[in-house]
Nucleic acid binder design. Structure first.
Length: 610
DNA sequence: GTCTAATGCGCG
DNA sequence: AAAGCGCGCATTAGAC
């Protein structure tokens, strides 16, 4: 039977698989230029390649106009064929919420939607950039801008899952949901109603969000271009040296477990609990560093300090050293485990890319988080073994016959700050190819500045770009607060326009960037706005370079990773030099009259190998 | 049992 | 006057 619902006061039709009618299907969908699209799959476990792994299944595909939603059952060949043809039609455009459906359609039906999609999550991120603070879920957005119909249907489905799930599934929300999407019967009315409404609400939401994006309509275009590019990166996957990763993981796990066991034996405490800090203090090793909440800290620096002071103590020394050894390797261990968990059968990971994650529009990458891999240590500085746990980037490898090359912007945040503030002396230094920190030190301390004063000048620069205060600068540089006050004062006198620009940023509730992006100030921490506009401009410059690379050269589809100020390419071995020259060329240019430059590196088959 | 805050570490 | 910024992810303890 065809279901009905009332959406924004209007009656809409929800066509279920049971009443599929080819003629009516075509007739209703031909009435709309843009179709809402949603898919339902079986659930996936955590720490799993998701749709890029094996075992998952596309169950339903839903397409909708403003008034008619069709739910099609992918286990029925006729419906599967009809929707495949519809999705593959190059003249059709679709709107989804998050790239998930682009991937399920690709994996399940072999259709790549590419540039033919709009995404309502992307539109909402443009309207309400909020980083971790703002949720971009479809149910929440439609409840705010339309009505509660979809949120109610989702709640009804959750209740239905709870009702149907056997007790051994557990009561955890995520477990119930996973079970439900896998096992709910394909003809369950609550399921079909929810599925249909999702596509229909996405369709009806689109013009509402598009209207809100009117002041920056140009961003809607470029951000969807980027979105499709990064979806392709995810779908292609990134190759991992799984043999090396497994070997390293086994070795590091053995080491960490041994060190943790030693701490536990010696102290009776869980080695990772705060109780260890108390135990150490009782035995004379008192940490002077503090966490943000004012509690005694036992981080890397605190441990290093304690080892320095109490390393020879017969009671505390062995505990400190074992704790330090475990702590230093734990992060690497977790990352190695994530590589293995997210790798598909061919040894490729498919990281999820959120092209507008941060409040500043910076991108994020997770599952696995390839932007946060420790860099390999410099071989000159320390003896580094082949199986050193810190060489995580070297687990990322090129496809056969290919190498990795990369380029990163040179001091891009300082250049952006100079440009935005029109700080002439600093701009001139960049034009002349001079070292900006030498200039800063000279302006602050005179021609005869010492190396220590240059370091202070550099810290004052980055501190200013981040909104640091006197106390923090004093603590992080080891000078007194009075001295820090003097340093900041000298910096402000050296760059008065930068000071003024920061003031101007603090006055505004919404910061508008050079690209026309609207960023909300943090109402309680207005000093952050200066950093927001700088960070956001850096992100836009990187995407500009990517756009140039993709539209004027052959190397756009070689992009493997974007890491904030760096582009990593995977290119055929013989093209390494040419590709790198092209890449650095695309990353070279001007921002508001200030030169932007890039440094290139040829890595070879492993990322970050030295 | 499940959820959340606190802590710590990695990158730019 | 004072305030370093943005992310992802693992582990733990304690609240519910």
């Amino acid at each position: 039977m065809t279901l009905t619902a009332t959406v924004q006061g209007e009656t809409v039709r929800l066509h279920t698989p049971a009443d599929y009618d080819p003629a009516l299907f075509t007739a209703t969908l031909d009435s709309d230029q843009l179709l809402g699209l949603d898919t339902e799959t079986t659930g996936f476990p955590d720490k799993h390649p998701g749709v890029f792994g094996t075992g998952g299944q596309l169950r339903l595909v839903q397409v909708a106009t403003r008034t008619d939603a069709w739910v099609l059952d992918m286990n029925l060949p006729e419906q599967r064929g009809a929707v495949t043809n519809l999705l593959a039609d190059p003249g059709r455009r679709f709107v989804t919420h998050s790239p998930y459906d682009v991937f399920t359609v690709w994996r399940g039906l072999g259709v790549w939607l590419g540039q033919r999609t709009l995404d309502t999550m992307l539109l909402h991120q443009l309207v309400s950039p909020g980083g971790k603070q703002v949720r971009h879920g479809l149910k929440k957005i439609t409840a705010e801008l339309m009505d509660s119909g979809l949120a109610d249907a989702a709640q009804a489905l959750t209740d239905r899952f709870r009702q149907l799930a056997p007790a051994d599934v557990g009561r955890k929300a995520a477990d119930i949901k996973r079970w439900g999407f896998t096992h709910i019967p394909a003809d369950d009315e609550t399921y079909l109603r929810y599925a249909a409404l999702d596509a229909l609400y996405v369709r009806r939401l689109t013009p509402l969000l598009t209207a809100q994006c009117a002041p920056y309509a140009h961003l809607v275009r470029t951000e969807h271009w980027l979105y499709a590019q990064m979806a392709a990166v995810t779908a292609r996957g990134i190759r991992i040296d799984t043999d090396r990763t497994e070997t390293l993981h086994t070795k590091v796990k053995t080491e960490v477990d041994a060190h943790l066991a030693e701490v536990a034996t010696l102290t009776g405490c869980n080695p990772r609990s705060v109780k260890l800090t108390a135990w150490l203090a009782e035995h004379g090793a008192v940490s002077t560093r503090r966490t943000d909440n004012g509690n005694p800290s036992l981080d890397k620096e605190a441990l290093a300090e304690l080892v320095h002071l109490h390393g020879d103590d017969p009671v505390v020394g062995p505990v400190l050293r074992a704790k330090q050894a475990a702590q230093e390797r734990t992060n690497a261990l977790n990352i190695l485990a994530s590589f293995l968990a997210y790798a598909d059968a061919a040894g490729r990971v498919h990281p999820n890319v959120n092209t507008l994650k941060a409040v500043t529009a910076r991108m994020s990458m997770d599952k696995p988080a390839l932007q946060t891999l420790k860099k390999s240590p410099d071989p000159g500085e320390a003896e580094v073994s082949e199986d050193d746990a810190s060489r995580l980037r070297e687990c990322v490898i090129a496809e056969d016959g290919h190498v990795l090359v990369s380029a990163d912007f040179k001091a891009v945040e300082v250049r952006i700050a100079a440009a935005l503030a029109q700080e002439t002396k600093l701009i001139d230094a960049f034009h002349a190819g001079a070292d900006p920190h030498n200039l800063t030190a000279k302006l602050m301390f005179g021609d005869g500045f010492t190396p220590a004063q240059r370091t202070l000048a550099k810290r004052a620069m980055f501190g200013t770009l981040y909104g640091i205060g006197f106390a923090k600068l004093a603590r992080s540089t080891g000078i007194t607060e009075d001295a820090a006050r003097d340093v900041i004062g000298r910096f402000r006198r050296a760059y008065p326009r930068l000071r003024r620009f920061g003031f101007d940023m603090e006055k505004q509730d919404t910061v508008v960037t050079a690209s026309g992006r609207h960023l909300p100030a943090d109402p309680n921490k207005r000093y952050r706005s200066l950093n927001y506009v700088i960070q956001s401009s850096g992100r836009d410059l990187l995407v500009d370079a990517f756009y140039k690379l993709a539209t004027t050269t052959e190397y756009g589809r070689c992009v493997l990773l974007l890491v904030h100020d760096e582009i990593v390419l995977q290119v055929p071995t013989g093209q390494a030099e040419a590709a790198l020259e092209t890449l650095t060329g695309c990353m070279t240019g001007r921002f508001m009259g200030v030169p932007i430059e890039a440094d290139g590196t040829i890595h070879g088959p492993r990322w970050g190998a030295k």
